[in-house]
Design a protein around this nucleic acid. Structure first.
Lengths: 103, 103
DNA sequence: TAATTATATGCCTGTCGGGGAATATTACTG
DNA sequence: CAGTAATATTCCCCGACAGGCATATAATTA
């Protein structure tokens, strides 16, 4: 089964779905409309996202409302952290350099 | 060919390679040793990483020295940014809440 | 209960990408 | 130039998906 968050996000459609959910909870059919994908396709992607913990769902009549779960996105962010540290260090160095120039 | 940074990073071996390169420039054979992968495998992954812009290489005698290129990692970070904004907002709210408690 | 809406699932098919082994290529050395 | 070290590339096989379509399931309403 898909566990790895990175491979889950490798699919553009899934990132698009998450981007939509960032704006708020959404039903499947809303996603189908907004993303111009087939309903089965959306459902399948949602299943992957759900099993990977990126989204959760609740039932509302016949609809299922999907909601973004930030936790898993943080997993990606954690992998990125040391890299981000690298470029912020470079930025800091640049700033210090510019400060010196002003003297 | 592989363009999308996310699918490039979907492969764990490639993330491992980047993690190694974070520590400094490295030759192919060093990576083979450290990651316990076959040489062809490493070379193939490096090719993908190179074509996607995650790494660059220079020639040093028979060796090729690979080097991390941060730019592309930033692409991932940029996608992540709005999400990160969300959880830092939550953190801010929590802080404000705790501050109130202290009063 | 029959009909309808909303969503999930199963099946099939085609494609893509990774691993392994062998081989090609490039650069260095004697 | 012959030999060797380091890396790249090719070929083949196979498993993992994604898309499309049909169908199942669940909840709702008439």
């Amino acid at each position: 089964m898909h566990q790895d968050p990175f491979s889950v996000l490798a699919e553009p459609a899934r990132r698009n779905i998450l981007d939509q959910l960032r704006m708020g909870e959404t039903s499947v059919s809303e996603l189908v409309e907004r993303l111009d994908l087939s309903q089965p396709s959306v459902s399948k992607h949602l299943k992957v996202l759900r099993e990977a913990g990126f989204v959760s769902s609740k039932v509302a009549a016949q609809r299922r409302i999907y909601r973004l779960e930030l936790e898993r996105v943080r997993a990606i962010d954690e992998w990125l952290a040391p890299y981000r540290a690298m470029w912020t260090r470079s930025l800091d160095a640049l700033e210090r350099h510019l400060d010196k120039m002003e003297e």
